[in-house]
Design a protein around this nucleic acid. Structure first.
Lengths: 148, 148
DNA sequence: TTTGTTAACTTGCGAAATGCAAGCCATATC
DNA sequence: GATATGGCTTGCATTTCGCAAGTTAACAAA
């Protein structure tokens, strides 16, 4: 894997976009963390740990670090509790949403009992754009509030 | 991971569709094999081995087996060379194409030098549906020819 | 018909990643 | 001052990965 001086993957190297995506988030856990942020509204370490799939704590710490290194998420200090942290997707992370949506579609089609919120069910039936722009707006607003 | 008597993942168990997708193809190599079949027209073990990402032979054998177990691909004996095999995606495997397309979009946007065919570039600029239906038709025809 | 070649794997083994449990440490609360 | 909380790190056994080498059946050429 070609990485530059900061142990980051070189985005200038010519390569297949699918290979690039899979190098960054092609594992069992990274996209689940993004799902938890984007679709389930999770923000904190303890919430990700408590997600139904049961990620273990060292793996979670590792993925939160690598997602930050890839520029997909960012860690903010909690303004009211200095020992707590808030994790939010960056714009590059938000742009993963269409991939999640297609996984939702595919999985829903191939599962007898897909567990998704009514909101997502409705969005998948019609147009997903409104849901995605709403999520995007919400998270951008949270970022702005934490940035100041 | 809940699996039934055949070591298959139980599609009746209630679970998140994204989690399901990631359980089947959430690793560095499975979706690359599907990409190679669907977008690059590869059909044989030796072709997958020679793909630019450099999968190693034991991992390739392992993924071809697990993709078959998941019902995403199928192995056919080569009708003219009895020592050779032809791998093709099933319909369930073809349905992964929208996920690949979104990865193509995302990766292309975030790479300075995305390596994709002109055909794919053009499809991403406009409507991808024609490309996908053409691939689907081609592969269905190949399957039909091998089935008989 | 022997000899070599090709296609598709399997095996062995060291290295890295994973998963579980326990421990740690800086806040924050009582 | 004592306890609790949030967010981790560490140790260690197990699993998976990646590389190299070996295997086997089918074909091809001499």
């Amino acid at each position: 894997m070609p990485r530059n001086r900061n142990n980051q993957i070189d985005p200038a190297a010519p390569r297949c976009p699918i290979d690039y995506a899979l190098t960054l988030v092609g594992d069992r856990w990274s996209l689940l963390v993004v799902r938890n942020m984007v679709l389930l509204g999770m923000r904190r370490y303890s919430e990700f740990l408590a997600a139904p799939e049961g990620i273990s704590t060292n793996i979670l710490a590792n993925r939160l670090r690598s997602l930050q290194e890839c520029g997909l998420i960012k860690k903010y200090p909690d303004p009211v509790d200095r020992k707590a942290a808030i994790y939010l997707p960056t714009d590059k992370g938000l742009e993963l949403m269409p991939i999640l949506v297609e996984m939702l579609r595919w999985g829903s089609k191939n599962l007898a009992n897909p567990m998704i919120t009514d909101e997502v069910t409705r969005a998948l039936k019609g147009n997903t754009a409104p849901l995605l722009t709403r999520i995007e707006r919400t998270i951008r607003a949270e970022r702005a509030a934490l940035q100041s």
